[in-house]
Design a protein around this nucleic acid. Structure first.
Length: 492
RNA sequence: GUCUCCAUCGUCUAGUGGUUAGGACAUCGGGUUUUCAUCCCGACAACGGGGGUUCAAUUCCCCCUGGAGAUGCCA
């Protein structure tokens, strides 16, 4: 049997971690089995579907490098791949179900259903869900309602007795009493659009899908879908319910846990290979040692057997670690290209680059490479190079356990020293600055730190001499003088 | 409430009917270093509880507990 799997998101929001994890597992499974990966857009919710979400879907898959064998953009033999373009199909199949006495029209208003639900909750009723009111309508009653021009939906006749079992590749057999399955779920909505259950089952069948890999939150509707396949007289595909991705509190990952939209990770400067690698490790592992996998590796090595059953917590810190590792693997040229948009956006440089900016950036890259967790970190890390910095405070200029007078002396000596230089390229700078510490009988850091703060505005910066070289002698001296003035005021 | 699923360090996980239960992230120490980071070394840290089965259970079975998900004219 040839493997055909699909990722079938509904474009009702930005693509998020949970979604792409499902997409990735489907994609890797397809590739590892030499099967097909299909994208199907389930835009059956008229109110919530949006074009923005659809564009985000395409951009995200593209960014991650997930290529579809069939889908709305690339076409294929089983199209169309957008459900809103297939509604006539669903109507026909729903109608057929009515003719076969597997489904029925329901004229209940949303208001009545709301009341029903409220009542059930208030009375703590054992019964839940639809009361199957219209299932028992006589033909006369039905004709009467039709004559009134009432809108209707089509509901599935879920068997009242018996049980339904489906097999999950990971979980094994899952059985539910039919009396516990949603009582007669809506298949076709009053707006003529199908619900997820109907469209999903029809399309998976028609598109010849072999394996359904989706998140575990769908397990409860498994039996319902089996019932639908049975109603149509179709053979259901194989199921594999994937463990869910949770937030730190153990609940389904959502916005309140922080960024979950892929585009947000992208904007912050996460690399696609890092996100792809990390997300793939939540719920799947290869062995006890290996943790770095490229997309190509996963396309080759992925296997269903290695999927974990238990849900996994999404660890932002571990993602950061992966991202840092991948950043450090970049060549300077690659990293420059990656970082440039962030520098432009921060207003530090303008494109096309001037020659001096170009040189500056080229020299900057090696300095920040080992310090970046996300690409956007480069902005704060290099701000002192591109913009005027705030005047340092006295406290920030003083190293621990060093008084203002000593610090001032150190800065003054440093200023003299640097002023005498012809070029910041002079290799003797370091040696001579260390000598100042000896002269003043203080720690090396007692000299370096005030200079660092004066020049970069921060206790944390790229290496001092490299920073000075990048900044240029003139600006360095100006900033040193300013710091000296500040300290002089303090001492006086 | 009901139904279903799940259960190894804080987190992601490896693993086995007999192991000093392994790795990674995080955390904490130490080393390298002008700061930070990188890099290196080290430490801390887990089989939820109770019954079985067995010579032997973290591993197999049952119960409990805990967690999650589903209970929509959303997917």
């Amino acid at each position: 049997m040839s493997v055909r799997v699909r990722y079938a998101p509904s474009p009702t929001g930005m693509q998020h971690i949970g979604g792409i994890r499902t997409a990735l597992f489907n994609y890797f499974f397809a590739r590892s089995q030499k099967g097909s990966f299909i994208l199907r857009v389930e835009d059956t919710d008229q109110e919530r579907s949006s074009n923005e979400a659809l564009q985000d879907l395409y951009e995200t898959l593209d960014w991650l490098g997930i290529d579809c064998d069939e889908g709305p953009l690339v076409g294929g033999a089983y199209g169309p791949y957008t459900q809103s373009e297939r509604i006539e199909l669903y109507k026909e199949y729903a109608q057929k179900l009515i003719e076969d006495n597997k489904a029925y029209r329901c004229y209940c208003t949303p208001e009545r259903l709301d009341e029903l639900r409220a009542k059930q909750v208030a009375e703590k009723s054992k019964q839940h869900g639809y009361d199957r009111h219209c299932r028992h309508l006589t033909d006369e009653e039905r004709q009467k309602l039709e004559a009134q021009g009432l809108t209707s939906v089509i509901r599935l006749k879920v068997p009242l007795e018996g049980k339904t079992t489906f097999h999950d590749l990971l979980m094994g057999d899952i059985t539910r009493r039919n009396s516990d399955v949603n009582p007669d779920p809506v298949l076709l909505k009053s707006d003529g659009f199908p619900t997820y259950h109907l469209a999903n089952v029809i399309d998976d069948h028609l598109m010849n899908i072999s394996h359904i890999m989706r998140a575990q939150e769908w397990i409860p509707s498994g039996p319902l879908h089996i019932l639908l396949y049975e109603a149509f007289g179709w053979e259901p595909p194989l199921y594999c319910h994937l463990p869910m991705v949770m937030g730190k509190d153990g609940q389904k990952l959502s916005k309140r846990h922080g960024a979950t939209a892929v585009r947000d990770f992208r904007a912050k400067g996460y690399l696609p290979e890092a996100l792809l690698n990390y997300v793939s490790m939540v719920g799947w592992s290869y062995d006890s040692e290996r943790e770095f996998f490229s997309k190509a590796d996963l396309c080759e090595l992925f296997s269903l057997e290695k999927i974990n059953k238990a849900p996994g917590v999404f660890d932002y810190k571990k993602l950061d670690w992966y991202n840092g590792m991948y950043i450090r693997q970049k060549t300077d040229e690659e990293l420059t290209a990656l970082l440039l948009p962030f520098l432009v956006e921060a207003g530090f440089v303008r494109q096309p680059l001037r020659a001096d900016d170009s040189h500056k950036i080229a020299a900057l890259i090696p300095l920040v490479k080992e310090r970046l967790k996300v690409l956007s970190d480069v902005v704060e890390m290099s701000r002192f190079l591109f913009t005027e910095i705030e005047a340092p405070t006295v406290e920030s200029l003083l190293p621990k356990k060093q008084d203002a007078a000593t610090t001032l002396a150190a800065l003054k000596k440093a200023l003299v020293l640097l002023s005498q230089l012809d070029s910041v390229e002079d290799a003797k700078i370091e040696e001579q600055l260390v000598a100042i510490a000896t002269e003043l009988d203080c720690k090396v850091n007692g000299v370096f730190m005030p200079i660092r703060v004066a020049v970069t505005g921060s206790h944390v910066s790229p290496p001092l001499f490299d920073s000075i070289r990048l900044l240029g002698l003139e600006t360095t001296l100006t900033r040193l003088k300013r710091a000296i003035t500040i300290l002089e005021d303090e001492v006086a």
